[in-house]
Simulated assay, not measured.
Amino acid sequence: MPAEVYNANPTVFATSKVSKPSIASHSIWIDDADAPRHGEKDEAEPIDSDEIFEHIRQIVDPEHPLTLEQLAVVSAQQVEVNGNHVLVEFTPTVPHCGASTLIGLSIRVRLMRTLPQRFKVDIRVKPGSHQSESALNKQLNDKERVAAALENNALLNVVEQCLKPPT
């Protein structure tokens, strides 16, 4: 958790529906056991925005023991799927939220772990919702910056805490 709390008293919203069973935690890297064997077809199963939302709604905020859905940081309306392209837009609770990078990184890691490799994922801050919107969007969608962040054990530990099912 960050040392400084950027929103000490967030508004908590009701969740939209009962969540599906939580997603099991595993390595952020691809598991070769799940890869198709030689001669097997990798059928492209369609994935919709509701399924993507189910994957990210239970991510826990880095500052509070609340989910991103409870804080209205993510909603089903902020997820778009167009073929193999996924766009997730999130809304920080305050315009100066220093935890926005961790939130976006947590969303990216969850989707890296759950979606097939064929998907291109873009994570963006809702336009006008953060004072460093452009820099955040650039950082969250740069493969090299994301890879470097995930090599940092301290950051990775915070992301892992965010991805644990809420208590």
Rank of each mutant, 00 (worst) to 15 (best):
141 N>V: 07
145 R>Y: 04
124 R>K: 15
54 E>Y: 05
60 V>I: 11
78 Q>V: 00
150 L>P: 11
132 S>K: 15
90 F>V: 06
135 A>M: 13
10 P>V: 03
71 L>W: 05
75 S>H: 04
104 G>N: 08
21 P>N: 10
25 S>M: 12
117 Q>V: 09
11 T>I: 15
6 Y>L: 09
56 I>H: 06
67 T>W: 02
107 I>R: 01
11 T>C: 01
36 P>S: 07
135 A>N: 13
61 D>C: 07
47 I>D: 07
17 K>S: 09
77 Q>T: 10
39 G>I: 11
60 V>Q: 12
151 E>K: 13
154 A>L: 13
153 N>E: 14
69 E>D: 08
72 A>M: 12
37 R>L: 08
144 E>D: 14
22 S>K: 08
113 R>W: 00
5 V>S: 05
88 V>Q: 03
10 P>M: 05
30 I>T: 12
116 P>V: 03
14 A>F: 01
108 R>I: 04
143 K>S: 15
92 P>Q: 00
6 Y>A: 04
44 A>L: 12
77 Q>F: 04
132 S>I: 03
9 N>C: 01
98 G>E: 03
24 A>W: 01
19 S>N: 09
126 K>P: 00
122 D>M: 06
58 Q>L: 13
130 H>R: 08
57 R>N: 11
52 I>M: 07
74 V>N: 11
159 V>P: 01
102 L>E: 07
